[in-house]
């Protein structure tokens, strides 16, 4: 079971800020494929990966990164701080 968090327009498209997900996905890309297969709103949120960033346990990561041992996955658009 991992915590999956969504921020900014990803959160708005999916309609919730976080959820617990039961998954055997090996990589972030596998998790995205599982989520996208669930419902249209997920497929829509994940339709353009170039517009998304991912953090694993609060560190920026990449879509081909393995999920073994990861407790928290966050999806969000490119950051706009400052």
């Amino acid at each position: 079971m991992i915590d999956v968090l969504y921020f900014a327009w990803v959160r708005e498209r999916i309609g919730l800020p976080r959820e617990k997900v039961q998954t055997d996905a090996a990589t972030v890309a596998d998790l995205i494929a599982e989520l996208s297969a669930r419902e249209e709103r997920y497929a829509l949120a994940f339709s353009d990966l170039a517009a998304l960033r991912v953090a694993l346990d609060q560190e920026l990561s990449s879509f081909d990164a393995p999920l073994a041992g990861v407790r928290e996955v966050a999806f969000f658009p490119p950051m706009t701080g400052g």
Binding site: A8, F76, P77, M79, T80, G81, G82
Partner: peptide
């Protein structure tokens, strides 16, 4: 610090106006 805060600190800005709400694009 400013350059890195802009694109590596996890903040997202949304502008609200009479026309509606828009997420600021990076």
């Amino acid at each position: 610090l400013m350059d890195y805060l802009k694109s590596r600190a996890p903040f997202w800005k949304k502008e609200l106006s009479a026309d509606g709400a828009t997420w600021v694009a990076a």
